[in-house]
Nucleic acid binder design. Structure first.
Lengths: 312, 312
DNA sequence: ATGAAAGCGCTAACAA
DNA sequence: TTGTTAGCGCTTTCAT
């Protein structure tokens, strides 16, 4: 009667509703879960909850989930060990019907997941067919950033990557390489360095390049934080951005436009990625034989003040 | 036998353990919850999940919760209406045993919560005795920031507050006022303006003060974002920070030290606040007659480059 | 020290 | 269209 059943006598319905109101009856979700074997709870795991990118994906997932009548458990697992532990707990206890996995260190995890588990990966490609994923179109995004710099006349373009164990870092790098090649620019391995997404790593890498007198007129950092660090190192060496060196970041993090100079960047709609992930997951949870999808989200170039024409 | 019961025959225990291993048995948390009426789940509500302050509190709460064998449901409720709805759902369904409430618009909510609900408020004072809270010592923190500026020789100190409906904004303002008074500085209402925590609001307020030729040599912004906005406005007006005007922020958000100039600020340990909140909540959940505590967390002054000695 | 049985609050299948 | 009943997987109490 409560669960919106159709064929009930209007009069009965009224009586029931009256009783509900009178007793203040509220169905118990736990008992319900127990009876139907469905918890209407999803879980979302990320390395941490504070990084804006992750937080924003989580928020998107949470919004979408709640809109469909699900709640979202969130938990952070900074390393592989704790991740595996967490997944085990979650699955074993059958609290969550599905998992949104925001985890860069993917492959080993995926191997670890039992086949029947409903999971959607965000920002990482499960290189198997057994799961859906939502990814940024990192290849194109990397190409877009590189093309922007080439269009401005730059030819010696340094690249600060994220950890190359992560799919997105590898794809962005690939986009960079492909675009250089298409523009007939010789690849130069001296210009490529691996960071860890932190501003400090961007700073360190650029300082080192500068000390080693590596020549470049532009830098493509795979996230805004490393771009900020890079700009810091440049400024410290007396170089002006963008007059001497152009810098493009990635993410369009909050306040990117408030740095000096305002950061040119690639915007990714992480909130939307979260929504998509939750939607896919809910589909998978509600279908007995779910189909697997790979959703690719487009990125957008945001031109601000940290990039400028090559003035060689 | 599984639940660590003492009086069992060692031999029986062995047999049971063998069976568990063989069958791959994993207890079902839902059934357990149902039987004992305990879900071992807490919920954490915040206006959003992306703001670093909130995210960091949530992460702290999540860590602490999990350490005690609880999971954490998170949800965002940007306005009062959705908040009330959410709380109702959560309580009615009895999914969560307790609530960590990170919510600035507090009073009306609190009134709304039934007495028996276990809740811990973060960053807001439940002005009743029926709940615990974890708050930053905003009064002292506000005083500390103000004193720092006074110590540098400033006497015309502008203040950009957060929304004054929020306890923390009011307390920081009070700390500012008290400190000015103690230093025999005339209060000047022209120097106080209310922002909304956004960089834009800081920008707008300072631009307006500048346009109206309000005199000040220092600004105390109640968060770093508004401080950034303020610096932006100052720079645009051709003023140098800190040579012409000193600016102090609040929060010590990530990258605060990467802005130019690096932001002097008050650091609050939000992660710890989250932990404390979860700990208090778990205590309350596990005690039949919980005591209520108000925990006050100290703040710390981080001096960087955006404040300097008054130079006439 | 162990086994048996009732019941947590619901849903779903069935009988009326 | 409505009422009845079994059972979801566990904990807990009571007998053994």
């Amino acid at each position: 009667v409560i669960n919106g059943f159709e064929r009930v006598n209007p009069e009965t319905r009224q009586r029931v509703e009256a009783a509900i109101a009178e007793l203040g009856y509220q169905p118990n979700a736990i008992a319900r879960s127990m009876a139907q074997g469905r918890t209407h709870t999803l879980a979302c795991l990320a390395p941490n909850l504070t990084d804006f990118t992750f937080a924003s994906i989580i928020e998107g997932a949470e919004n979408e989930a709640r809109q469909h009548g699900y709640f979202l458990l969130t938990a952070s697992a900074p390393d592989q060990e704790s991740f595996v532990l967490l997944v085990d707990q979650l699955l074993a206890s059958r609290r969550a019907e599905g998992l949104v996995l925001i985890t860069p260190f993917l492959d080993s995890y995926h191997t670890h997941l039992p086949r029947y588990v409903r999971a959607v990966y965000v920002s990482a490609d499960p290189h198997l067919d057994g799961a859906s994923s939502v990814m940024l179109d990192d290849l194109n995004a990397g190409a877009m950033a590189t093309r922007h710099l080439i269009d401005l006349g730059h030819r010696e373009i340094a690249q600060i990557t994220g950890p190359l164990v992560e799919d997105c870092a590898r794809n962005r790098l690939l986009g960079y390489q492909t675009t250089l090649q298409a523009a007939n620019i010789q690849p130069n391995s001296q210009l490529i360095a691996q960071g860890d997404w932190s501003a400090t790593s961007g700073y360190r890498i650029v300082s080192k390049m500068l000390a080693e007198k590596v020549r470049f007129s532009a830098i493509f950092a795979q996230n805004d934080r490393m771009a900020i660090g890079a700009i810091h190192a440049l400024r410290q060496a007396g170089k002006h951005v963008p007059q001497d060196v152009s810098v493009i970041g990635f993410d369009d993090m909050p306040l990117a436009s408030y740095f000096d100079p305002a950061i040119t960047t690639i915007q990714q709609d992480t909130f939307r990625m979260g929504r998509e992930a939750a939607r896919l997951l809910i589909d998978a949870v509600e279908q007995p034989e779910p189909a697997f999808h790979k959703v690719l989200i487009g990125a957008e170039l945001i031109v601000r003040q940290s990039t400028g024409r090559f003035s060689g």
